[in-house]
């Protein structure tokens, strides 16, 4: 949503109630057979996977500056590497930490514990990189900053202690002050209220 807000484009949003398993309902599987969010419909055609959606939005709305300008296939591949590293390296680790029940039929505690071990080197490396720059890529904001933000704040929701990571804390404040991010949050809150009222 932050990416869409940054593109300043009109879009409709439909919240999916994961608590009720709506992502697996026939109605939603007809939209996305993978039963996953986010799912973006562009003129009725589906793009799934957050990183792929961000990549497409960058192509479709280059003026929004979602991703750094790539002057070669090599530079473009490095950006893809980062995006999909977050999707496949960070996200599943954060999930083990925040929602350990996802990875076990038994006691979630040792899964959460393992999630914390996996998250630790990720957030520490992130903090170290941010020592000399405001954003992941340097002076300019990009959507990967918000993607990282989502991961580390979600780890915190899973009781991961982020204190002592001062560069990360400063990054967090910068993301929270970003207008497109604030608009996305407002819209998400409005959608959540609608969903609660409908229930």
């Amino acid at each position: 949503m932050t990416a869409l807000e940054q593109c300043a484009v009109d879009y409709a949003d439909h919240p999916v109630n994961l608590m009720k398993g709506e992502q697996h309902s026939p109605g939603f599987r007809a939209v996305n057979p993978r039963g996953k969010i986010p799912a973006l419909l562009v003129d009725g055609e589906l793009i799934g996977e957050n990183a792929a959606i961000q990549w497409w939005l960058d192509r479709a709305y280059p003026e929004a500056g979602l991703l750094p300008k790539a002057d070669s296939d090599w530079e473009a591949a490095q950006v893809l590497s980062d995006l999909f590293w977050i999707a496949s390296g960070w996200h599943p680790s954060v999930r083990a930490n925040m929602m350990p029940i996802r990875w076990t039929t038994g006691d979630p505690a040792p899964v959460r514990e393992r999630g914390k071990e996996l998250v630790k080197p990720l957030v520490e490396a992130f903090d170290a990189r941010l020592a000399d720059r405001p954003w992941w890529y340097g002076d300019d904001w990009s959507i990967v900053d918000v993607y990282f933000y989502w991961n580390y704040t979600t780890a915190e929701e899973g009781q991961y202690d982020l204190s002592g990571l001062d560069n990360l804390a400063a990054h967090r404040a910068r993301v929270e002050a970003w207008p497109a991010f604030q608009r996305a949050l407002e819209r998400e809150n409005a959608a959540r209220e609608r969903m609660a009222n409908a229930a």
């Binding site: 083990a96 990875w103 076990t104 039929t105 038994g106 006691d107 505690a109 040792p110 899964v111 514990e113 393992r114 999630g115 071990e117």
Partner: peptide, 10 residues
């Protein structure tokens, strides 16, 4: 890789 405890439920 996903647990510090019993691996069977994972």
């Amino acid at each position: 890789m996903w647990s510090t405890g019993d691996v069977e439920p994972v």
